[in-house]
Design a binder for these strands. Structure first.
Lengths: 224, 224
DNA sequence: TAGATTGTTAATCGATTAACAATC
DNA sequence: TAGATTGTTAATCGATTAACAATC
């Protein structure tokens, strides 16, 4: 843990803030670079990276340059070095303990999801309002009662929560999370959460993702 | 089914294409309007809708106006009417049959997810490469062998697939889907899929979503 | 009518791309 | 050195916001 902002390579406050779109692509660069390393590549140029992701080379360079001069003229970017740099920027060079609320269908799947661990996140506890589910272990993780939320979050200094409860409960649970000191919520309930400005919410609405596909298919837009 | 583009209210090709960001927000408007109706609201103004979602009133009006003059000056938008209009635009005024590939942790959770049905999607079949899983029924849906993919997709005229297979298999399965005639893929594998330009891919990478949260938390950006 | 709210135009703001000197 | 590729500036492009006449 210890996700403090000390010695982070982000532009210090006061400078141009990094656009959200850039931070999003940063995660994609990271993922792609990890694949490149796995395939045995030592370096990659902005053109190569861009081709893989469908971006222009200029965009790749500009995005990365927000955070520092990582590239080597004439050579490109050293993959592993850039991976380490991006992880540090995103804060995933260390492991974040996270809690999961809601052990329904989706919650249980998320508990078993291996992708989190690979990228610097570890679900340390699960919570459920249903007394019948409390006390179980799912994929080795204890299911605790909601009453233990604050205690757990405070004692383990947890900053991020995954919210996978039914829609009608989402707002209330979100408020409990904030009250317990959480600063980031990954919300799977298809509702807009209202939280104070210093709490960050990323929403994943599976139906919305399908709707976007439906629209694209109906309008048969060829990409590019 | 019959997701043809006949009598859709989208701007006919040749006119200004609607920005992707607008289509994304359209889904959010839909979701919010459905909540408003559930709460007994007959009409809503652009200011109200914007407040709920954190957008300006001007943006709400401009977004909606891409698709037609849905509002009533002095009154606002009639919620149910706008819901119906947006559904038609997105293509979800009819039910889309979809297939799911991969019945691991995540795949099974998606099979049980109720949110799809509410929004115009129905999973009609699941597929798995593992012969041991084939033949089962999960949440009432048959698990079929990958060999049946093309047959199923063609016979039921399926356009959209949900891909929840392990990363190493994703690209290959995606190619099979495209070969079978799929035009839209909701991809949960943390890889960039390479498909022909007329196939649409929406990616959901759960680790990336958490990374975005981590960045926001580390940089403790107050929103707004 | 007066009040509310739309659709739309013009102004602003921000993000992407192209181009190129600097670098290895 | 020649070739490749960066970081960055300026130009372009697109999206958001403000303002307001038109409408109910």
């Amino acid at each position: 843990m210890s996700q403090t902002e000390e010695n982070s390579p982000q532009p210090s406050s006061g400078e141009t803030p990094v656009p959200q779109a850039v931070v999003n692509r940063l995660s994609l660069y990271l993922r792609e670079l990890q694949h490149l390393v796995r395939d045995g590549n030592e370096t990659a140029s902005s053109t190569q990276i861009g081709k893989l992701l469908g971006f222009t080379d200029a965009q790749v360079r500009k995005d990365l340059a927000y955070f520092g001069p990582f590239g080597y003229p004439g050579v490109g970017y050293r993959c592993q070095e850039l991976i380490d740099a991006i992880k540090k920027i995103l804060g995933t060079n260390q492991v974040w303990p996270v809690v999961l609320i809601g052990t329904g269908n989706l919650g249980r799947a998320l508990l078993g999801y291996r992708g989190f661990g690979n990228q610097g996140f570890r679900v340390v506890a699960a919570f459920d309002a249903d007394a019948g589910k409390v006390g179980r272990k799912i994929d080795g993780i204890d299911v605790l009662p909601l009453d233990d939320l604050k205690k757990t979050i405070e004692s383990q200094n947890i900053r991020i929560a995954i919210l996978a409860v039914p829609s009608p409960a989402a707002q209330l649970v979100a408020e409990k999370l904030v009250e317990a000191g959480i600063s980031g919520i990954l919300n799977f309930a298809p509702v807009t959460l209202t939280v104070s400005k210093d709490v960050h919410v990323v929403g994943v609405d599976l139906a919305i993702e399908l709707e976007q596909l439906a629209y694209a298919v109906v309008n048969r837009q060829a990409r590019e």
